[in-house]
Protein backbone atom coordinates (compact mmCIF):
# COMPACT_ATOMS: atom_id res chain seq x y z
CA UNK A 1 0.00 0.00 0.00
CA UNK A 2 1.44 3.31 -1.11
CA UNK A 3 0.43 6.91 -0.79
CA UNK A 4 0.42 9.30 -3.73
CA UNK A 5 0.04 13.01 -3.19
CA UNK A 6 -1.48 15.17 -5.86
CA UNK A 7 -2.44 18.85 -5.80
CA UNK A 8 -5.76 19.54 -7.46
CA UNK A 9 -5.66 22.55 -9.77
CA UNK A 10 -9.38 22.75 -10.41
CA UNK A 11 -9.87 25.87 -8.31
CA UNK A 12 -7.72 28.23 -6.18
CA UNK A 13 -8.24 25.92 -3.21
CA UNK A 14 -5.39 23.74 -4.38
CA UNK A 15 -6.50 20.80 -2.23
CA UNK A 16 -3.68 18.47 -1.33
CA UNK A 17 -5.21 15.07 -2.07
CA UNK A 18 -3.76 11.83 -0.81
CA UNK A 19 -4.44 8.65 -2.74
CA UNK A 20 -3.98 5.24 -1.27
CA UNK A 21 -2.80 2.88 -3.93
CA UNK A 22 -2.47 -0.91 -3.77
CA UNK A 23 0.25 -3.14 -5.27
CA UNK A 24 -1.50 -3.19 -8.63
CA UNK A 25 -1.61 0.58 -8.72
CA UNK A 26 -5.37 0.68 -8.14
CA UNK A 27 -6.74 3.54 -6.11
CA UNK A 28 -8.28 2.18 -2.95
CA UNK A 29 -8.44 5.26 -0.77
CA UNK A 30 -8.97 8.97 -1.36
CA UNK A 31 -8.86 11.90 1.00
CA UNK A 32 -8.30 15.65 1.02
CA UNK A 33 -10.55 16.84 -1.76
CA UNK A 34 -13.47 19.13 -1.11
CA UNK A 35 -15.48 18.68 -4.28
CA UNK A 36 -16.28 15.93 -6.76
CA UNK A 37 -14.93 17.68 -9.86
CA UNK A 38 -11.63 17.80 -8.07
CA UNK A 39 -11.81 14.07 -7.42
CA UNK A 40 -12.21 13.38 -11.12
CA UNK A 41 -9.27 15.60 -12.01
CA UNK A 42 -7.03 14.00 -9.40
CA UNK A 43 -7.89 10.45 -10.46
CA UNK A 44 -7.14 11.30 -14.08
CA UNK A 45 -3.94 13.07 -13.05
CA UNK A 46 -2.90 9.97 -11.14
CA UNK A 47 -3.75 7.47 -13.85
CA UNK A 48 -2.52 9.44 -16.80
CA UNK A 49 -0.78 12.70 -16.06
CA UNK A 50 -0.44 14.54 -19.35
CA UNK A 51 0.80 17.95 -20.41
CA UNK A 52 0.82 20.00 -23.55
CA UNK A 53 4.44 20.54 -24.56
CA UNK A 54 5.31 23.98 -25.90
CA UNK A 55 8.66 25.22 -27.07
CA UNK A 56 10.29 27.20 -29.87
CA UNK A 57 12.35 25.98 -32.80
CA UNK A 58 15.10 27.97 -34.47
CA UNK A 59 14.26 29.27 -37.92
CA UNK A 60 16.80 29.11 -40.72
CA UNK A 61 18.01 32.63 -41.26
CA UNK A 62 17.09 33.80 -37.81
CA UNK A 63 14.19 34.00 -35.42
CA UNK A 64 12.07 31.42 -33.67
CA UNK A 65 8.88 29.49 -34.37
CA UNK A 66 6.63 28.73 -31.41
CA UNK A 67 5.30 25.17 -31.49
CA UNK A 68 3.08 22.91 -29.38
CA UNK A 69 1.96 19.32 -29.27
CA UNK A 70 -1.54 19.22 -30.71
CA UNK A 71 -2.65 17.12 -27.78
CA UNK A 72 -1.21 16.54 -24.30
CA UNK A 73 1.57 13.95 -23.97
CA UNK A 74 2.58 11.94 -20.91
CA UNK A 75 4.11 14.24 -18.30
CA UNK A 76 7.14 11.97 -18.00
CA UNK A 77 8.04 12.48 -21.68
CA UNK A 78 8.33 16.29 -21.57
CA UNK A 79 12.10 16.46 -21.24
CA UNK A 80 12.67 13.71 -23.74
CA UNK A 81 10.25 15.47 -26.04
CA UNK A 82 12.24 18.73 -26.11
CA UNK A 83 15.44 16.80 -26.64
CA UNK A 84 13.85 15.07 -29.63
CA UNK A 85 13.12 18.50 -31.06
CA UNK A 86 16.46 20.06 -30.20
CA UNK A 87 18.12 19.52 -33.57
CA UNK A 88 15.19 20.62 -35.75
CA UNK A 89 15.45 23.73 -37.85
CA UNK A 90 12.45 25.24 -39.52
CA UNK A 91 12.42 26.83 -42.93
CA UNK A 92 9.83 29.46 -43.85
CA UNK A 93 7.13 29.75 -45.02
CA UNK A 94 5.11 28.06 -42.31
CA UNK A 95 1.37 28.34 -41.72
CA UNK A 96 -0.37 28.30 -38.37
CA UNK A 97 -1.13 24.66 -37.58
CA UNK A 98 1.46 23.15 -39.94
CA UNK A 99 2.78 19.84 -38.69
CA UNK A 100 6.48 20.20 -38.00
CA UNK A 101 7.00 16.73 -36.59
CA UNK A 102 4.57 13.84 -36.65
CA UNK A 103 3.91 11.52 -33.75
CA UNK A 104 6.38 12.81 -31.18
CA UNK A 105 8.05 9.90 -29.40
CA UNK A 106 5.22 7.59 -30.44
CA UNK A 107 2.69 9.44 -28.33
CA UNK A 108 0.38 10.11 -31.26
CA UNK A 109 0.76 13.86 -30.73
CA UNK A 110 2.03 15.98 -33.60
CA UNK A 111 4.21 19.01 -33.05
CA UNK A 112 2.50 21.91 -34.83
CA UNK A 113 3.30 25.56 -35.48
CA UNK A 114 1.37 28.02 -33.33
CA UNK A 115 2.28 30.98 -35.50
CA UNK A 116 2.84 31.64 -39.17
CA UNK A 117 6.22 32.40 -40.66
CA UNK A 118 6.43 34.43 -43.80
CA UNK A 119 8.85 33.60 -46.58
CA UNK A 120 12.22 35.30 -45.88
CA UNK A 121 12.45 38.47 -47.89
Amino acid sequence: MKEERIICIGCPMGCRVTLEVDERGEVVGFKGNRCKEGKEYVLEEYRNPVRVLTTTLPVEGGGTLPVRTDRPIPKGKMREGVRALAKLRVRPPVSLGDVILEDLLGTGANVVATAALRERR
Partner: peptide, 12 residues
Protein backbone atom coordinates in the same frame (compact mmCIF):
# COMPACT_ATOMS: atom_id res chain seq x y z
CA UNK B 1 23.51 30.42 -24.79
CA UNK B 2 21.37 29.93 -27.84
CA UNK B 3 18.02 28.22 -27.47
CA UNK B 4 18.48 24.42 -27.64
CA UNK B 5 22.26 24.75 -27.21
CA UNK B 6 22.13 23.16 -23.75
CA UNK B 7 20.10 20.23 -25.11
CA UNK B 8 22.17 19.40 -28.13
CA UNK B 9 25.24 18.31 -26.23
CA UNK B 10 26.19 14.64 -26.19
CA UNK B 11 26.05 14.47 -22.41
CA UNK B 12 22.36 15.42 -22.26
Amino acid sequence: YRSKELLSGADT
